[in-house]
Amino acid sequence: MERRLAIKQILFLAGGMALLPSCLRDTGKSSIALQTIDVSLDQEHLLADISETIIPETKTPGAKSLNLHLFAIKMLDDCYAKEDQELFFKGLDALQDRSEAQFSRSFQKLTVPEREQLLLAIEKDEQAEPAIKKFYDIIKSKTIEGYLSSKYVMTNLVVWELVPGRWNPYYAVKSA
């Protein structure tokens, strides 16, 4: 039991899901074990900042404390085709380029409103190049998916029931 507890403490909980830490990790490598992609620690921190911009800490936990960026990385690693993964990293670089071009600073040196402004501009840019578009689609949709299916949200905000024990086919609601 002691050992199990110890293992539990070194697992990363991404929205409630346990991720294995990367063993014998090189300095500069992502903190979780990955199969198909390489993510540097710098990239991981950048992704954390981007996820945190999408779902910030307010009175309730945000992306970083829920490790949603790690969930997004895990999904990118296991559930996306190689070409999407390549577009993702190209798009991540392109995002830094945009930050430099627009603010003469890297994304991490931006203020929160500047970060939001930058991401919103990508979201609204119908002419955005495929890489940055794909990057944004993945990081945003996975951050949201990780958030909505996180233990925090599923037990506190939009409760998911394992055992509903009921079926009410006529549940009165306010008409829209």
Binding site: R166, W167, N168, Y170, Y171, A172, V173
Partner: peptide
């Protein structure tokens, strides 16, 4: 639209 459902229908 005055109706929805609650619980799940197996």
């Amino acid at each position: 639209l005055q109706w929805s459902t609650d619980g799940r229908n197996p």
